[in-house]
Design a protein around this nucleic acid. Structure first.
Lengths: 341, 341
DNA sequence: TTGTACGCGTTATCAT
DNA sequence: ATGATAACGCGTACAA
C-alpha cells in the first residue's frame, strides 16, 4: 500500500506545492483554474499534481464549503426487485453530477433505519432519498432533519414531504384499455395482496375503464390473493370454472401472469388467440421469456429514481417542493396480447 | 430546513460547549467518554448535546484520524441479479461496524469505472470492494491505489490481488452427486454461454463426478447455449430426441431449468418421478415457484459479500491477504428431485 | 502574480 | 478537572 509519494500517507496539496516550488495557496489557485496565476506557474503545478497523481481531499473541501457532495439512499428492501431500478436511476443521475451516494439498507427494520439515518446525518449528506419496499405510505422521517428528503415509491405519510409515486390507477386503466383495443369483451383481473394500496388502485383503474366501455368484469370479482405464481395458477382455475367465456386476463404482476399462462396452457386455451394476458412490472426475465412473451405494464422505476434525484438537487439548491408527484406507467406490448383473430 | 439550534447551520461542538458552559475541549472529552472529566460536568454536556441533537461532524473527525470509516462498493452491473446479494452481504457486514458504503455502478463501462474510482479515492475511502458482473477474471485496478481492494465474484487478473469467488467446479460435482444419490443413471447437462468460465467449471465438475461413478453423460455432450429459459426449452427438445432415456437434467441456471420443466411437461414426462431436474442460482422467485418447486444450487452470494467485507476489514487493519479464495456452494433440495420411484 | 493568515469542526497534547 | 492551542487539508480574503 505505497502511494506515489513513496509513503503510506496520501498526497496532499503541500506535496504538490513543494514539488512545484510554490505556496499551497498558489497551487490551490492554479489547480482550481483561478485567473490570477501565471500560465507557466500553472502548468508547473499541474504537472506536479499529475506526477504525484494528486487528488484533492474532498473531506477538507467539504469542511470548508459546507457541502459534502454526498447523498444518502435509504432503502428498506434491497432484496426486493423494486428498489434496484429506482436506486440505479438515482445513482445514474447523481453520478453524472459528481455526487456520491451512500447506500443504506434498513431491511424493513425501523431501528436500523434510525441508526442509518443518524450515521448519514453525521456524515453531513446534502440530502436523502428514501426508497420504500411497497407502494403504500410510510412514516415520515420528520421535518427538521436539516437536509431535504425525497420519498420514492412509498410516499411519506406527511403531505408536507415530497413524494414520488407511480400512477397505479392510471396503469390499471391502461392495461384494460389495451385489452379492449384488442377486441376483448370478457376481461378478468387477477391480482395480489389486497392490503397493498397499489393492488386496490390498479383494480379501481381497471374497473373504471371497463365501466366506461360498458363491459362487465369477467368472473364478477377481482381475484385478490398473493403476489405469486402459485396464486396465479389457483385463481385462474377458479376463474375458468366460474366463467369459461373469459377472453382476457389482466394480472397484477408478471409472476401472477406466469401462473395464469401455465394453467391456460394446461387447459389447452391458446394465448393470445383464445385468451389474451397482460402482466404488470415488466420484469424482463419473467416477461420476455414467457411463452408467449408477455405484454405488461412498466412502472418506469429507473425514471422515477432519476426524477427523485432531480427533485433532490432542486431542494439542495434551495428550491424545495412538497406534496405527492405521480409518474405515469408505460404499456409494453409483446405477444401475449393481440387483436382477436 | 431549520435545525434544532434555530438556524440553517448544523449544530457544532461549540454550540454544545457554550450551552453546557464549558470549553470545546472538555465537551469533546465528556462526549467521548474520557475518564478525566467530572461526572456532573459530563452529564451537563451530554444533556446539552441531546437537547441540540448534536451529532459530531464525521468529516472533521476523519480529517484528523486519517480514516473516514467509508468504503467504496464498485459494481459493474447493478441490474444483474448476482451483484445484489453480494452487495447486501457487504453492506450488512459494514453496517454493523459503523462503516458507510459508497455505491458506484460502472455499468460495465471501463471509463465510468475509472471515473468512479477517482471519486472514491478523493473521498478517501478506507478500502474498496469490486463486484464483477460475471464469474470470470477482470482487469486489476492496480497495486498502488493507496487503499486495500477486495474483488468479489469476478477475480482480478493480478494474482497479487485478493479475490473471492464461488467454487463452480465443486458446485457441478455437488449437483450431479445429488442426482446420483437419487438413483439417476442417465444424467444430462444443459447450461449457458460457453464463454463463461463458470459454465466450463460447472461442466467439468459434473463430468468428473459422473466419471467417478462410472456413469455416462446422457446425450453424449454438454449442451452449451444461452442463459435463458428459451434455450432451456430448445436444448431439452434436442436432448429428448437424441436420448429419450434421460432420467435427470442438471441445468446451469434456474432460468434454463424453468425451460427444461416446461418442455418436460409438454412431453408428458413427470418431474421428478420420470425425470429429475436441478437448477443453479437458487433464484427464489423462479425456483421456489416452479412446478414442481425446483431443487437448485445456492452460491451463497450474501455470505460472499460478508466475507469480502471481513477481508477488507482485515486489510484495513494492516492484515492484507492475496490470492484467490474459493467459497463453497450449497445444495437446496425442493421437489424437482427425488429418489427414483 | 504570489504568499501569508485564517477558518471549517474535531481530537489530542500540554498547561493550568 | 478543565482550558488553551495545534493539527488535519483545503480555499480564500488580504497583504505584499
Amino acid at each position: 500500500m505505497v502511494t506515489s509519494n513513496g509513503t503510506a500517507r496520501p498526497v496532499t496539496l503541500r506535496d504538490v506545492a513543494r514539488l512545484a516550488g510554490v505556496s499551497v495557496a498558489t497551487a490551490s489557485k492554479a489547480l482550481n483554474g483561478q485567473p490570477q496565476v501565471k500560465a507557466e506557474t500553472r502548468s508547473r503545478v499541474m504537472e506536479a499534481a499529475a506526477q504525484l497523481s494528486f487528488s484533492p481531499n474532498t473531506l477538507a473541501q467539504a469542511l470548508i464549503g459546507g457541502r459534502t457532495g454526498t447523498v444518502g439512499l435509504l432503502t428498506s428492501d434491497l432484496e426486493g426487485r423494486f428498489s434496484i431500478p429506482i436506486l440505479m436511476g438515482a445513482e445514474d443521475a447523481f453520478g453524472s453530477d459528481q455526487i456520491s451516494v451512500f447506500l443504506c439498507d434498513a431491511r424493513g427494520d425501523a431501528i436500523r433505519e434510525k441508526h442509518h439515518l443518524r450515521a448519514l446525518l453525521s456524515r453531513r449528506v446534502d440530502g436523502l432519498i428514501v426508497v420504500g419496499a411497497r407502494p403504500d405510505s410510510r412514516p415520515s422521517l420528520g421535518r427538521d432533519l436539516g437536509v431535504p428528503v425525497v420519498y420514492a415509491y412509498s410516499p411519506s405519510d406527511d403531505p408536507e414531504d415530497l413524494s414520488l409515486v407511480t400512477d397505479n390507477e392510471a396503469a390499471g386503466r391502461l392495461a384494460v384499455d389495451h385489452l379492449i383495443s384488442c377486441g376483448r369483451t370478457r376481461i378478468a383481473h387477477i391480482t395480489g395482496d389486497p392490503s397493498y394500496g397499489a393492488a386496490q388502485d390498479r383494480a379501481r383503474g381497471a374497473r373504471s375503464r371497463l365501466t366506461e366501455a360498458g363491459l362487465p368484469l369477467a368472473g364478477d370479482q377481482v381475484w385478490f390473493g398473493m403476489w405469486s405464481e402459485a396464486w396465479g395458477r389457483g385463481a385462474t382455475r377458479m376463474l375458468l370454472r366460474k366463467d369459461p367465456s373469459v377472453d382476457a386476463v389482466f394480472a397484477g404482476s408478471d409472476e401472477i401472469a406466469r401462473g395464469v399462462l401455465d394453467v391456460l396452457h394446461q387447459e389447452g386455451l391458446d394465448v393470445p388467440s383464445r385468451v389474451a394476458v397482460i402482466g404488470f412490472d415488466n420484469w424482463e426475465v419473467l416477461a420476455a421469456n414467457a411463452r408467449p412473451p408477455l405484454s405488461t405494464i412498466d412502472m418506469q422505476l429507473e425514471e422515477l429514481g432519476r426524477r427523485a434525484a432531480q427533485r433532490l438537487f432542486a431542494a439542495i439548491d434551495g428550491n424545495p417542493a412538497s406534496g405527492t408527484e405521480t409518474l405515469p406507467c408505460r404499456l409494453i406490448t409483446r405477444e401475449s396480447t393481440a387483436p382477436l383473430g
